[in-house]
Amino acid sequence: MITLENVSKTYPPNIKALDRVSLSIKAGEFVSLVGQSGTGKTTFVRCLIGEEKPKEGKIKIGDWDITKIGKREIPYLRRQVAVIFQDFKLLPKKTLYENVAFALEVAGKSNAKIKSIVPQVMKIVGLGAKMHRYPNEVSGGEQQRAAIARALVYQPKVLLADEPTGNLDSINAQEIIDLLKKINEFGTTVILVTHNRDIVNRLKRRVITLHDGRVISDQAVGKYVL
């Protein structure tokens, strides 16, 4: 499903954010990517969504080599590989509903389709009752749920979550992780970037550990090793 072959990314002047990373992730997996801060986890995510081009190596999603992707293809990639972040990245002047609908509107989907999909997805993430509020009128956990809803509207093959619980307390964090597990059960490949030891240990799934841009461990049922 996702394969990286010797992927390296260097930022100027000479920061090796990723150093010859090779790995593969099968469809339907739930993978945790862990490591100290500054070890290239976000860079890994940005390479997978086409925001950064690696200096060397190949990244393939299915048969699609996204290291060669053009700017015009990025909107299509985003529908296959969705992403959520620690800071939610919701539009503050739009309601949660409008934020989710926006992802469909930009792609020219019909109003009828939007009206049927959005409430459904909002219900899946548990925001049915609060979908007409603005982001600053709900909790961080609820904002992250809205971001997840927005990521889900295209039924992406892959969901990348870059420290999605970084701004949340442990109860809200666990709820978000449970939601990601539920999404994974529906068939979406989930890659969870985190440095929360408890979460990783409780998941009992595959854990990939990065250190200074290199993969230093990759365990099928992993523990947080650092």
Partner: peptide
């Protein structure tokens, strides 16, 4: 940036 993130051209 967010518009770009969700795939707006």
């Amino acid at each position: 940036a967010i518009m770009r993130l969700v795939g707006a051209s």
